[in-house]
Design a protein around this nucleic acid. Structure first.
Lengths: 134, 134
DNA sequence: CACAGTACCTGCCCAAAGGTGAGTACATGA
DNA sequence: TCATGTACTCACCTTTGGGCAGGTACTGTG
């Protein structure tokens, strides 16, 4: 019955993070980047630097509130760089940090292989639905 | 003003999936595998075959209801294989399909790099919080 | 001169996510 | 014989996610 509580340390004094542990901060961070809008925002930023409304048009369906909220979380975790120029009208540019780019690459890889394999997913659905119906 | 609606087809008659499009089924499927519990279930199943309650102990914090729900979704999408033996007491084994393994590999890669870079995340947080405080 | 656009924030509210506890049908161990 | 474990489902309720409308402070365009 070993309870792994967040500030866990291994035999070398290194911090140990485990997303499978309920209270580990890494799980919270994982949810920021794999959340409904987080993953799409990060993937979109792989195409370059975007202004708020441009990003919003790219991520189809996201509301202003949600985009602002997820960008704040991603900025705080060090994945996204926010560059606000105090001009009028305001201009804010969002881009990936090196850390953010490392994560976004993996996410984009995931997205692209999923898109490529969607026919298999749709086939599985009809197969499973048919099996359950009878 | 091109509206990409789900059953989109490219110039070769191939189905085109785009997670950035609001109504594309690929976005729904992406949410199944990157959802709060989906990603953890898939990653856990990379360690082999598990029974329901074993999986539940592995994915710390998930409720019976949620685990059952996410496993059903993953099974329907063809990521997880459910093998129910009609014995008493019931025994149900969950494992990854080849498609599920392909996705879970990417997810595990993501998780492991995130866990490794969590110190950077925590450092970013204190830096951002300090900048906002002043 | 009025209206659209920029980059948000705030409050209001509804719907969806998700937790809790009970029930099931049987077998095995104490 | 009584409790425990298995793999769930269902009903109920709370919490959270997230959409919508409105406000802001100013500028460039028709």
């Amino acid at each position: 019955m070993t309870e792994v509580v967040p500030p866990a340390v291994d035999e070398h004094g290194q911090l140990v993070f485990d997303v499978f542990a309920r209270a580990c901060t890494s799980r919270e961070t994982l949810e920021h980047i794999t959340g409904r809008w987080g993953i799409l925002a990060l993937a979109a930023l792989m195409d370059g630097t975007f202004r708020f409304n441009a990003l919003r048009r790219k991520v189809d369906g996201v509301s202003e509130k949600m985009l602002a909220q997820t960008l704040h979380a991603l900025e705080r975790d060090g994945f996204v760089l926010r560059d606000a120029q105090a001009t009028i009208p305001p201009r804010v540019d969002y881009s990936l940090t090196p850390l953010g780019r490392a994560m976004a690459e993996k996410l984009l890889d995931l997205i692209e292989t999923l898109e490529g394999r969607m026919p298999e997913v749709l086939a599985a659905r009809v197969a499973v639905d048919a099996a359950k119906a009878k």
